[in-house]
Design a protein around this nucleic acid. Structure first.
Lengths: 159, 159
DNA sequence: TTTCAGTGTTGGTATGGCCAACATAGCAAG
DNA sequence: CTTGCTATGTTGGCCATACCAACACTGAAA
């Protein structure tokens, strides 16, 4: 969660540590994101967006696969999907091969909503990176990609 | 809060957006931090560290000033300070000039604890930045500083 | 047939960042 | 002095993100 108001000062031993900088950067980014979703997001939040994006890109999937694919917990997937279903943005249907499983599909309305959110979110990227030149932006992105590359344990298939 | 297990894949429209990269970077950093505090942090958490650092660096201060200085809410300052006081790491005494105000002072034990946490946290910086060369680390830090510079509204004095 | 892993759900936890209300203390004007 | 205003510390709550635990049930392997 964002710490909206920055401290007036920050202790020296804190203020230049990467972990601190990262958390402040995140606070800023996530604050901007929340504000953007708030004003133009139709009441949806990042879970919804991620789920819609996954469905649009990978096609229909079970909830469990969606959870694994997006890194969202099964229980949270259920909740977010119910929200989306209520708005007619996705459809749940029982998998005939396995009655316990739902097959989730994005609807045309869902795709439209996704596109709309895309725009909102693109605008936010701009805001977030505004202080940097475009060369710096590219650098910044590249550095984070590198930082994260080690992490992702490489997909073992699935979905 | 950290999303400990990264998604196996990430939708294209999500995976290269700065806001996403930032949030993953934060998740990684904050996961590492939490793990570090867990194993070597004596049960303290980031609020405690920030408060100890502020006290060590700026000297005794009232709780309100600590809150303003560190960006931590008054109520959270109270709670964290009680924890620290219980461990003998800080002392609260009533300000004779203003009986409603506490003057908080770090104890020698508090300083020792702070130094210990410093080591732990430094180790974590290493881990976080491990994938980057030292030139890249400097770049990364500089970029974040620039990104954040606009934010901090400039201190209006106090503390 | 008994077990076992996988599924969707409900409900609960923890943390960090917040806000609201309160009693009281000091200050400032009248 | 007394009436207000502001500041302080405290309590108790809220919300969001990310989790976990337990459940009932399905299908498939043993």
């Amino acid at each position: 969660m964002p710490m909206d108001h920055a401290p007036r000062r920050t202790p020296d031993r804190v203020k230049d540590r990467p972990t601190w900088l990262i958390s402040r950067t995140f606070a800023r980014s996530s604050g901007l994101l929340a504000a953007g979703f708030e004003s133009h997001g139709s009441g949806l939040r990042s879970y919804h967006y991620r789920l819609l994006a996954a469905l649009e890109e990978w096609g229909p999937a079970s909830q469990a696969d969606l959870g694994r694919g997006t890194g969202i917990d099964r229980s949270d997937v259920t909740a977010a999907l119910s929200e989306l279903e209520g708005r007619g943005l996705v459809e749940r249907s029982v998998d005939p091969r396995h009655k316990r499983r739902n097959i989730v599909t994005i609807t045309p309305a869902g795709i439209a909503q996704l596109l709309e959110l895309d725009n909102v979110i693109d605008g936010i990227q701009e805001q977030v990176l505004k202080p940097l030149t475009s060369a710096q932006r590219r650098q910044f992105i590249a550095l984070m990609v590198k930082l994260l590359a080690a992490d992702e344990p490489l997909p073992k298939g699935s979905l």
